[in-house]
Design a protein around this nucleic acid. Structure first.
Lengths: 341, 341
DNA sequence: GTGAAAGCGCTAACAA
DNA sequence: TTGTTAGCGCTTTCAC
């Protein structure tokens, strides 16, 4: 007997007909509503599985006005901080019966904006965004009233979104002070995309510590990591500052600097103390091992997702919530510390 | 004047009414169909933007039977190989006007299966999967006839899916031969999840080379990286085999082994040559630098996405296609090579 | 506890 | 070139 006209797709209508119940009753069973007699429910469920019925989530969402989908936009998936955060978000979403649509902006405000647009058209129930945060980056105006948004890594100015962050300024200040305690004086702070929130905050923390110690502030700021060549580094560190310590403000920066240092023959710790904002795999295995400020990337994702689903479930006061996660200064050898063992 | 009854949502009906055209004409403009007079199209487009109209992709997809969405399932997003592949897929998808729903299985066949189910219910137009590939892992039976699937990293037995892979066996054989050329004889191959396709293939390649050289095959196989403790490693390498070289068959394995080696005081190269299947960030910065078989992770994702969209566009012969990407043996110091400079 | 009818926002036939 | 009429697969009134 022919079921639906549609080539290879069993619909709820088919299920209802084969079960001998109405469409609505079949729908009730699908949605696990209580007001169905046990026997009826069992019968319908049996038909569903024997027919290989698969609910069409597009159709469900259209009528029910919820897609069981959340969107997530990140800047660069190749960054381990990001991929760990995404991983955590995906896990929480799955546990809540949601799926994640992932988009990446690649540091391009246009892409970020159109990415948000695209997600909204898909009727996402929530959005987690790790915003570029450039002055040009504005997507706030296109977020519809009902949509719950959580920002990760940095906040959006004047926007009522929940957020998960670290205290960039304080973390950088503490780390800088650690370098100062080792007796380093000519500490150079290195950063990319220096106009961005996280960068400016970290640099500010570095400044705080240097000013407090009455020492000269020395910074090397570039827009893009590609400008961070070995020659440039040599010029900055050796010629311009005769630096005795280097503080890299993010992961790409650290990667570029480590390579550059080797090219110009600077030995970590011996010639120059080194500290990285952002810990990474194998930092403990380098020689010397690299000291770092560690951000809890998986907790970042986890907390952001928790905030979002609390909103989606609606059991949360309307007041904006902002979580500030603790960072950890992981002391290894490159800063000047001696490791036991 | 009241638009649609829906609280905060402008529909195409609203656009049509304000524009003074029929619903279908508005739809035509939205879909950039040619058969609309320029003036009419312009007028409608103006209304769309002035009203802030946003097409509902759920509704479009329901009717048009395409969601402009592809699904992707990976095993572990924390693995840099994976995150790079996902990144590439997302970029190709975006260029094609598609978005990516990301799911991760965490090496759990149940999760993989239900993940595929969930994606199918969302009416994805294509699926890229990096399958667990365990005997228990079977999702082939739930893939509907029309759905295009591309497998990444490993194939599915008896399934008609396109695939992107490397030649695991040959790559491992070549790498092993390189170790042999250095004069190493007691080479131990280390692998996790040894029953999986990529693992068995790589081990087989290692065997090929050892057998050809008339040397004893020595393997250390564990299910999970957590079993790969320093004690276990010491027992295997020192006591059981008095190994002079170690060949790790994947990234997690390499990470565990590097840490374990240090714990038991084995120095790379001096005490034990070392080779990693899977290159990683900073492999060139370790002391000694780590030699590795490099898989082109971004190309992996790119090629998989290209295969998929070729299918989705329908301009491809029905024959199954399998792309085998070249690997690169990156020679650094740990295998025994001397680096210039 | 169950069902009939309406309609979510859009596109596909078929007219005109 | 444009409009009318269905209807995608489901949930939601509101009735019984």
């Amino acid at each position: 007997m022919a079921l639906s006209k549609n080539p290879n797709s069993i619909t709820l209508v088919d299920v209802a007909r084969v079960s001998g119940v109405s469409l609505k009753t079949a729908s009730r069973v699908l949605n696990q509503e209580v007001s169905v007699r046990r026997a009826t429910a069992t019968k319908v469920r049996n038909v569903m599985s024997s027919l290989g019925y698969r609910p069409n989530e597009l159709a469900r969402g259209l009528k029910a006005r919820r897609s069981a989908t959340i969107g997530m936009i990140v800047k660069n998936l190749a960054d381990p901080f990001t991929s760990n955060a995404v991983k955590a978000v995906e896990e929480v979403a799955r546990a809540n019966g949601y799926i994640v649509i992932l988009a990446s902006s690649g540091w391009d405000p246009e892409v970020e904006r159109s990415g948000v647009e695209s997600l909204i058209r898909r009727q996402i129930d929530g959005l987690i965004i790790s915003p570029i945060g450039s002055p040009k980056s504005s997507f706030v105006d296109i977020v519809p009233p009902g949509l719950n948004v959580v920002t990760l890594d940095q906040p959006i100015r004047n926007a009522p979104f929940d957020s998960v962050m670290i205290d960039n300024r304080k973390s950088a200040k503490t780390a800088t002070q650690h370098l100062l305690n080792h007796g380093h004086k000519k500490i150079v702070a290195l950063s990319t995309r220096s106009q961005l929130y996280t960068s400016t905050e970290r640099i500010a923390g570095y400044r705080d510590a240097m000013n407090k110690a009455g020492l000269e502030v020395r910074t090397g700021l570039v827009e893009d990591e590609s400008s961070m060549t070995a020659d440039w580094l040599d010029q900055l560190i050796s010629k311009q500052h005769q630096a005795d310590a280097l503080f890299c403000m993010n992961w790409v920066c650290t990667m570029s600097a480590l390579r550059g240092m080797r090219q110009i023959g600077k030995r970590l710790k011996k010639d120059l103390a080194f500290l990285s904002f952002d810990d990474f795999d194998l930092a403990d295995m380098m020689k010397p091992s690299i000291s770092a400020v560690r951000q809890p990337s998986n907790i970042f994702g986890y907390e952001a997702a928790q905030l979002l689903f609390a909103r989606i479930r609606g059991n949360v006061a309307p007041k904006r919530r902002s979580i500030v996660l603790p960072t950890q200064l992981v002391l290894r050898e490159s800063c000047g510390c001696e490791l036991k063992g």
